[in-house]
Protein backbone atom coordinates (compact mmCIF):
# COMPACT_ATOMS: atom_id res chain seq x y z
CA UNK A 1 0.00 0.00 0.00
CA UNK A 2 1.33 3.45 -0.86
CA UNK A 3 2.21 5.88 1.91
CA UNK A 4 1.28 9.53 2.44
CA UNK A 5 4.12 11.07 0.46
CA UNK A 6 3.53 8.71 -2.45
CA UNK A 7 0.02 10.13 -2.97
CA UNK A 8 0.63 13.19 -5.08
CA UNK A 9 -2.75 13.95 -6.66
CA UNK A 10 -3.98 17.52 -6.19
CA UNK A 11 -5.68 17.91 -2.81
CA UNK A 12 -8.77 20.12 -2.98
CA UNK A 13 -8.53 20.93 0.71
CA UNK A 14 -4.99 22.12 0.13
CA UNK A 15 -4.34 22.41 3.85
CA UNK A 16 -0.62 22.88 3.35
CA UNK A 17 -1.34 25.52 0.72
CA UNK A 18 -3.66 27.25 3.15
CA UNK A 19 -0.93 27.28 5.77
CA UNK A 20 1.47 28.57 3.12
CA UNK A 21 -0.97 31.35 2.26
CA UNK A 22 -1.12 32.32 5.92
CA UNK A 23 2.66 32.60 6.07
CA UNK A 24 2.71 34.62 2.86
CA UNK A 25 0.11 37.00 4.31
CA UNK A 26 2.30 37.54 7.36
CA UNK A 27 5.39 38.14 5.23
CA UNK A 28 3.57 40.64 3.01
CA UNK A 29 2.11 42.50 5.97
CA UNK A 30 5.49 42.78 7.67
CA UNK A 31 7.31 43.84 4.51
CA UNK A 32 7.18 47.45 5.69
CA UNK A 33 8.60 46.62 9.12
CA UNK A 34 12.33 47.22 9.17
CA UNK A 35 13.04 45.17 12.28
CA UNK A 36 11.21 42.91 14.70
CA UNK A 37 12.49 42.81 18.27
CA UNK A 38 11.05 40.50 20.89
CA UNK A 39 11.16 41.57 24.52
CA UNK A 40 11.45 38.48 26.64
CA UNK A 41 12.68 37.12 29.92
CA UNK A 42 11.19 33.69 30.26
CA UNK A 43 10.10 34.78 33.72
CA UNK A 44 7.07 36.66 34.97
CA UNK A 45 7.09 39.80 37.07
CA UNK A 46 10.25 41.43 35.77
CA UNK A 47 8.48 44.26 33.98
CA UNK A 48 8.70 43.23 30.34
CA UNK A 49 5.55 45.06 29.32
CA UNK A 50 6.55 48.15 31.28
CA UNK A 51 9.96 48.19 29.61
CA UNK A 52 8.42 47.49 26.21
CA UNK A 53 5.91 50.33 26.45
CA UNK A 54 8.39 52.92 27.68
CA UNK A 55 11.06 51.86 25.23
CA UNK A 56 8.51 52.10 22.41
CA UNK A 57 7.53 55.60 23.48
CA UNK A 58 11.15 56.70 23.73
CA UNK A 59 11.90 55.36 20.26
CA UNK A 60 8.80 57.10 18.91
CA UNK A 61 9.82 60.40 20.51
CA UNK A 62 13.12 59.96 18.74
CA UNK A 63 11.36 59.92 15.41
CA UNK A 64 11.02 56.20 14.82
CA UNK A 65 7.90 54.53 13.51
CA UNK A 66 7.12 52.08 16.31
CA UNK A 67 4.55 49.34 16.77
CA UNK A 68 4.00 47.05 19.73
CA UNK A 69 2.49 43.60 19.45
CA UNK A 70 1.23 42.45 22.84
CA UNK A 71 1.83 38.71 22.66
CA UNK A 72 0.67 38.18 26.23
CA UNK A 73 -2.75 36.98 25.14
CA UNK A 74 -3.91 36.00 28.62
CA UNK A 75 -2.64 39.05 30.47
CA UNK A 76 -2.64 41.93 28.00
CA UNK A 77 -1.40 45.21 29.48
CA UNK A 78 0.04 47.15 26.56
CA UNK A 79 -3.12 49.12 25.65
CA UNK A 80 -3.30 50.35 29.24
CA UNK A 81 0.38 51.26 29.40
CA UNK A 82 0.15 53.13 26.10
CA UNK A 83 -3.32 54.50 26.86
CA UNK A 84 -4.42 53.22 23.48
CA UNK A 85 -8.17 53.41 22.84
CA UNK A 86 -10.01 50.44 21.35
CA UNK A 87 -10.53 50.70 17.61
CA UNK A 88 -12.70 48.80 15.18
CA UNK A 89 -9.74 48.04 12.99
CA UNK A 90 -6.39 47.65 14.74
CA UNK A 91 -3.77 48.97 15.21
CA UNK A 92 -4.74 51.35 17.96
CA UNK A 93 -2.54 54.40 18.42
CA UNK A 94 -1.31 55.21 21.91
CA UNK A 95 0.97 57.71 23.61
CA UNK A 96 3.66 59.31 21.46
CA UNK A 97 2.05 57.78 18.37
CA UNK A 98 3.00 54.19 19.16
CA UNK A 99 0.77 51.72 17.30
CA UNK A 100 -0.32 48.57 19.05
CA UNK A 101 -2.32 45.39 18.81
CA UNK A 102 -3.39 43.43 21.85
CA UNK A 103 -5.88 40.81 22.90
CA UNK A 104 -7.14 43.48 25.26
CA UNK A 105 -8.74 45.10 22.22
CA UNK A 106 -10.86 42.00 21.62
CA UNK A 107 -11.96 41.27 25.18
CA UNK A 108 -14.57 42.86 27.36
CA UNK A 109 -13.15 44.85 30.26
CA UNK A 110 -11.99 42.47 32.96
CA UNK A 111 -12.95 39.35 31.02
CA UNK A 112 -10.47 36.47 30.71
CA UNK A 113 -9.47 35.15 27.30
CA UNK A 114 -11.92 32.38 26.46
CA UNK A 115 -12.58 30.65 23.17
CA UNK A 116 -15.72 29.04 21.88
CA UNK A 117 -15.41 25.29 21.51
CA UNK A 118 -15.70 22.11 23.53
CA UNK A 119 -14.71 22.78 27.12
CA UNK A 120 -13.53 19.27 27.88
CA UNK A 121 -9.88 18.59 27.04
CA UNK A 122 -9.52 22.12 25.72
CA UNK A 123 -5.75 21.87 26.16
CA UNK A 124 -5.78 19.86 22.91
CA UNK A 125 -6.73 22.85 20.79
CA UNK A 126 -6.19 25.93 22.94
CA UNK A 127 -2.48 26.17 22.15
CA UNK A 128 -3.21 26.05 18.42
CA UNK A 129 -5.87 28.72 18.89
CA UNK A 130 -3.43 31.02 20.67
CA UNK A 131 -0.80 30.46 17.98
CA UNK A 132 -3.40 31.39 15.36
CA UNK A 133 -4.25 34.52 17.32
CA UNK A 134 -0.58 35.48 17.22
CA UNK A 135 -0.53 34.79 13.47
CA UNK A 136 -3.52 37.06 12.94
CA UNK A 137 -1.85 39.80 15.01
CA UNK A 138 1.13 39.56 12.68
CA UNK A 139 -0.73 39.09 9.42
CA UNK A 140 -3.87 41.18 9.77
CA UNK A 141 -2.69 44.48 11.23
CA UNK A 142 -2.00 47.22 8.71
CA UNK A 143 1.14 48.54 10.36
CA UNK A 144 2.27 50.55 7.40
CA UNK A 145 5.94 51.46 7.53
CA UNK A 146 7.61 50.82 10.87
CA UNK A 147 11.21 51.14 11.93
CA UNK A 148 10.67 48.58 14.64
CA UNK A 149 7.94 46.26 15.85
CA UNK A 150 8.43 45.34 19.49
CA UNK A 151 6.85 42.03 20.49
CA UNK A 152 6.06 41.85 24.19
CA UNK A 153 6.24 38.17 25.10
CA UNK A 154 4.52 36.54 28.08
CA UNK A 155 6.47 34.51 30.64
CA UNK A 156 7.74 31.19 29.33
CA UNK A 157 9.09 30.30 25.91
CA UNK A 158 6.06 28.91 24.10
CA UNK A 159 5.03 32.16 22.43
CA UNK A 160 8.62 32.83 21.32
CA UNK A 161 8.75 29.42 19.64
CA UNK A 162 5.42 30.06 17.92
CA UNK A 163 6.71 33.42 16.76
CA UNK A 164 9.80 31.82 15.26
CA UNK A 165 7.64 29.27 13.44
CA UNK A 166 5.26 31.88 12.05
CA UNK A 167 7.97 34.32 10.99
CA UNK A 168 10.23 31.66 9.55
CA UNK A 169 13.25 33.51 10.88
CA UNK A 170 14.10 33.90 14.57
CA UNK A 171 13.58 37.52 15.64
CA UNK A 172 16.15 39.56 17.56
CA UNK A 173 15.77 39.36 21.32
CA UNK A 174 15.97 42.05 24.00
CA UNK A 175 16.18 40.39 27.40
CA UNK A 176 14.69 41.80 30.59
CA UNK A 177 15.67 40.61 34.05
CA UNK A 178 15.64 41.86 37.62
CA UNK A 179 18.90 41.71 39.61
CA UNK A 180 18.19 38.59 41.68
CA UNK A 181 19.91 35.22 41.21
CA UNK A 182 16.50 33.57 40.92
CA UNK A 183 15.65 35.77 37.97
CA UNK A 184 19.08 35.16 36.44
CA UNK A 185 18.60 31.41 36.55
CA UNK A 186 15.18 31.56 34.92
CA UNK A 187 16.20 34.11 32.29
CA UNK A 188 19.29 32.05 31.44
CA UNK A 189 17.08 29.23 30.20
CA UNK A 190 15.14 31.62 27.97
CA UNK A 191 18.32 33.12 26.55
CA UNK A 192 19.70 29.66 25.90
CA UNK A 193 16.53 28.74 24.01
CA UNK A 194 16.79 31.93 21.98
CA UNK A 195 20.42 31.22 21.10
CA UNK A 196 19.56 27.64 20.19
CA UNK A 197 16.88 28.94 17.83
CA UNK A 198 19.35 31.34 16.23
CA UNK A 199 18.06 34.65 17.56
CA UNK A 200 20.40 37.60 17.81
CA UNK A 201 20.76 38.77 21.41
CA UNK A 202 20.62 42.56 21.41
CA UNK A 203 21.39 42.94 25.08
CA UNK A 204 20.03 42.90 28.59
CA UNK A 205 17.88 45.38 30.46
CA UNK A 206 18.06 45.07 34.22
CA UNK A 207 14.82 46.37 35.67
CA UNK A 208 13.80 47.32 39.25
CA UNK A 209 17.38 47.98 40.27
CA UNK A 210 17.94 48.95 43.88
CA UNK A 211 15.92 48.50 47.04
CA UNK A 212 14.94 44.88 47.83
CA UNK A 213 16.16 43.25 44.66
CA UNK A 214 19.82 42.50 45.17
CA UNK A 215 22.08 40.68 42.75
CA UNK A 216 24.13 40.82 39.58
CA UNK A 217 21.86 38.99 37.16
CA UNK A 218 22.41 41.30 34.22
CA UNK A 219 26.18 41.31 34.54
CA UNK A 220 26.31 37.54 35.01
CA UNK A 221 24.16 36.90 31.95
CA UNK A 222 26.01 39.49 29.89
CA UNK A 223 29.32 37.74 30.52
CA UNK A 224 27.88 34.30 29.93
CA UNK A 225 26.21 35.18 26.62
CA UNK A 226 28.69 37.84 25.48
CA UNK A 227 25.99 40.45 25.09
CA UNK A 228 25.88 43.97 26.55
CA UNK A 229 23.94 45.29 29.52
CA UNK A 230 22.02 48.05 27.79
CA UNK A 231 20.42 49.66 30.80
CA UNK A 232 19.85 49.38 34.53
CA UNK A 233 16.40 50.77 35.17
CA UNK A 234 15.77 52.17 38.66
CA UNK A 235 12.43 52.00 40.43
CA UNK A 236 11.48 55.48 39.33
CA UNK A 237 12.93 55.97 35.85
CA UNK A 238 12.71 59.28 34.03
CA UNK A 239 12.04 59.84 30.34
CA UNK A 240 15.80 60.31 30.01
CA UNK A 241 16.35 56.77 31.31
CA UNK A 242 14.28 55.40 28.45
CA UNK A 243 15.84 57.70 25.89
CA UNK A 244 19.27 56.40 26.85
CA UNK A 245 18.06 52.84 26.38
CA UNK A 246 16.43 53.69 23.06
CA UNK A 247 19.65 55.25 21.82
CA UNK A 248 21.41 51.91 22.19
CA UNK A 249 19.09 50.01 19.86
Amino acid sequence: MRTYHQLTDPDRSGLLDQIGAQRKRVAERLAGVRRIVTVMSGKGGVGKSYVTAHLARALARGGWGVGVLDADLNGPTIPGLLQAPPTAQPPAVGLDGVKCISMGQFLDAGAPLSFTGPAAESFVWRGAMEASALREFLGDVEWGTLDVLLVDLPPGMQRYIELCDILGNPPAVLTVTIPTPESRDAVRRAMRAAVDRGSELLGIVENMVGREFVGTAAQDLAEEFATPVLARIPWHPTPETWSQLAAQL
Binding site: M103, R126, A133, R135, E136
Partner: peptide, 29 residues
Amino acid sequence: QLVSSLGVEIGGRTVPAEPFEMLRANVVT
Protein backbone atom coordinates in the same frame (compact mmCIF):
# COMPACT_ATOMS: atom_id res chain seq x y z
CA GLN B 1 -11.97 22.58 16.90
CA LEU B 2 -8.33 21.64 16.42
CA VAL B 3 -8.66 22.03 12.64
CA SER B 4 -10.56 25.28 13.10
CA SER B 5 -7.84 26.54 15.43
CA LEU B 6 -5.34 26.35 12.60
CA GLY B 7 -7.38 28.75 10.50
CA VAL B 8 -7.78 26.25 7.66
CA GLU B 9 -10.86 24.70 6.07
CA ILE B 10 -11.36 21.11 5.04
CA GLY B 11 -12.32 21.15 1.38
CA GLY B 12 -10.51 24.39 0.74
CA ARG B 13 -11.36 28.03 1.14
CA THR B 14 -14.24 29.41 -0.91
CA VAL B 15 -13.74 33.03 0.16
CA PRO B 16 -10.54 34.87 1.14
CA ALA B 17 -9.74 35.13 4.83
CA GLU B 18 -11.08 38.24 6.54
CA PRO B 19 -8.84 40.17 8.98
CA PHE B 20 -8.96 38.61 12.46
CA GLU B 21 -11.36 36.00 11.16
CA MET B 22 -10.36 33.36 13.68
CA LEU B 23 -10.37 35.75 16.62
CA ARG B 24 -13.69 37.37 15.81
CA ALA B 25 -15.28 33.96 15.32
CA ASN B 26 -13.84 32.22 18.35
CA VAL B 27 -13.05 34.67 21.13
CA VAL B 28 -15.87 34.74 23.63
CA THR B 29 -17.21 38.18 24.37
